[in-house]
Design a protein around this nucleic acid. Structure first.
Lengths: 226, 226
DNA sequence: ATGGCACACGATGGATCCAATCACAAGAGT
DNA sequence: ACTCTTGTGATTGGATCCATCGTGTGCCAT
């Protein structure tokens, strides 16, 4: 699969524009580039050792993934979302991701389900927030990995990308008090996936996303006032 | 609104890359560029009177809208979808578009609803298929026009773009026998919008999209065998 | 002192040229 | 006759240079 839509890692042999996109994607998702930050083509080109042209193409790639926004003659910046916009993104997730999961579930191998379980075990042993964000993403993305529809998987990934920063802000704020709830939800979800039960899978996943949305939107301080 | 995500027309004063994207978008949506067709950068640049660079950026824009697919060193082509992929795109529409409609509905002005009604009247008077495709798109997009969430509107537009060609193929095949059903569904939808009733609006819209999906997937001959 | 305008600097968009990659075809070897 | 190889042409990716647009600063007028 040459498509970079779902990949987070950086293939070293790829074309320059995709290498640059990978680097920037990683920096945004890790939070080193925060919402509102501007991305100057010159600076990036110099820092990553290429010309500005691949940088421009990389910014287009990232725009299609929802990680930056481009405005003609004004440049690229990491999008700043209002609370309403985050809320809507979560409502989109509540509707789309169950479809992604159901489509993927029927094609998941036993080994892939076992991988999900191992990731969940790591989540339960873990206490670091940055690591939780990585593991949580890995857990859900693993459940979507066998989705045969590229557009569906790409949109799901895009929704995760767009909300990543606010998930982190929420975790840093609320701490890991709610980890027991998250783990219970993940366990139920995992069990439904193992049983290949689409109804339960959809129910638990919607509940999981919805609860996160409700808790998250109770903290207006994690977004710009607007 | 400078965003090109939902626009179909070509602003003449825009930057070259967006002008090129507009032209190509129009050619793809109108069916002059069919699935499987290749888009050569040189040829496009010469035809539209620009250098290849804006063409490359335009292709990236169109890729993010789902209208072309890019592969490194191999170029761009209009995506060819299998029946399963079209089916999944319609299932995505069934889940996403009701949300778009509900979000938009509460902000629609009376004048905008009146516009929807005028478009529906034109649909009922019309018998040309190419014109129906335009009007049908205008009818639904008008109902989404007041959606405050850019990502949601962009994704909805993207789903419409990706399925446009197969809608046309289906209409050319099935003719306009089913226009009575379409008109009845549109009228119900319009009434629900006028009453600002989110439950009915969602019910009718899901039914409308679902019926189209079911009828469309009964015609495997409109897609590549695969 | 404050608001508005003009100019200069910095950043982005576009054009041209060169390099790398791929696809197809012709030829040699088995 | 078939297949593998190699070379050539076509096409895309990348670098550099120039044009255009935004933005910030500073001056001037009110």
């Amino acid at each position: 699969m040459t498509s970079a839509s779902a990949a987070v890692v950086a293939p070293d042999d790829a074309v320059t524009s995709q290498r640059v996109a990978s680097r920037l994607r990683e920096e945004i998702l890790a939070g080193r580039l925060a919402p509102g930050d501007r991305l100057r083509q010159d600076e990036i080109a110099a820092r990553l050792g290429s010309s500005r042209l691949p940088v421009r193409e990389a910014l287009r790639i990232l725009e299609s993934e929802g990680l930056v926004e481009l405005e003609p003659h004004k440049g690229a910046r990491v999008p700043e979302l209002s609370l309403d916009e985050v809320d809507t993104l979560y409502r989109m997730r509540e509707r789309l991701e169950p479809l992604t999961l159901v489509e993927s579930m029927q094609h998941l191998t036993g080994e892939q389900v076992a991988h999900m379980e191992r990731v969940q075990e790591q989540i339960e042993e873990n206490s670091d927030i940055a690591r939780f964000l990585l593991l949580d993403r890995e857990f859900h993305m693993s459940s979507y990995a066998a989705c045969p529809s590229q557009p569906l998987l790409a949109m799901t990934t895009r929704l995760w990308n767009s909300t990543q920063h606010y998930r982190r802000a929420f975790m840093l704020l609320a701490g890991s008090d709610r980890s027991a709830v998250v783990n219970a939800e993940h366990r139920l979800l995992l069990d439904a996936v193992r049983r290949r039960d689409p109804e339960d899978a959809e129910r638990f996943l919607v509940g999981h996303i919805r609860r996160t949305r409700v808790e998250l939107t109770q903290h207006p301080e994690i977004v710009v006032p607007r």
